[in-house]
Amino acid sequence: MEERKASKRCGGVLPFFIGFLLSCIIGWAVIPPLFYQEVEQPLRFSHQVHVEGQGMYCDSCHYFREDGSYAGFPSIQQCAECHYVDDPEYVMEAIVEQVGEDYEAVLDLPEEEMPEALVELVMSGEERDRKAELDYLVKFAIPGKEIPWLNYQYQPDNVFFSHAAHQNLVIADLKEMEIDLDGVTVSKIEEIEESDQNCDLCHLKGIATNDTPPPFERNIISGYSKMTMKMWQCERCHAQMGQVNACYVCHK
């Protein structure tokens, strides 16, 4: 009888469960997102406009160099193959004349009030695309600055990833692969989504055709991307494909 009274005084097991549930929610759902900060890309680049609208191919911008290295993000020189600014100094002078030294302020003006020299460079039709293109022209193309793209697949600097080694991977094959390594079976990777493009294996799903790039999720402590591939994922696939998992296969 004495013991029962004691347990009643503390409210029984219910408060314990509520506390347990609360700490689970806080630990799993509330705290982890606080470690990530969403950062927008410097420019609203639409793959859709370029791929579907203009019929460009992936390797128009993302291609292998002769030495086997991979040109990930295009430079503004490559952008200028289409978005050519004939006389950037002249356009800059026109902008400065309108808004003063802080040339980026020109983007706050309605399009009708922008200098003619700038507006005639814009090739897009839709309003939001025109806005993005003006962003590109004023912030990067005319002052001649490289675009500081945020790499969703950013890896620490001691990782050496070879695009050349992975270019012939086929996702459909990968889903079927099951191998036996000295009695240990590496089972199929079920969660890989089917896709025609093997880039989708590591890169964001559908990034090749999306209209507005999603924000980059940066870990506020390490600075690394949340969306990138982790070492265990690399290792699992290597094991499954019968590839070596020695340290120096990927590290430098």
């Binding site: 292998f64 002769e66 030495d67 086997g68 290295s69 620490p156 600097d157 001691n158 050496f160 070879s162 050349a164 080694a165 120096y248 430098k252």
Partner: peptide, 27 residues
């Protein structure tokens, strides 16, 4: 990759050159 204070390092036989040579061969 640069090394921070508190770790051991050594000659890696310019391993990245080996990796880039392999990349070039692949392409």
């Amino acid at each position: 990759s640069v090394r921070p204070r508190g770790v051991v390092e050594k000659c890696n036989f310019c391993h990245t050159r080996f990796m880039t040579a392999k990349e070039e061969a692949r392409i």
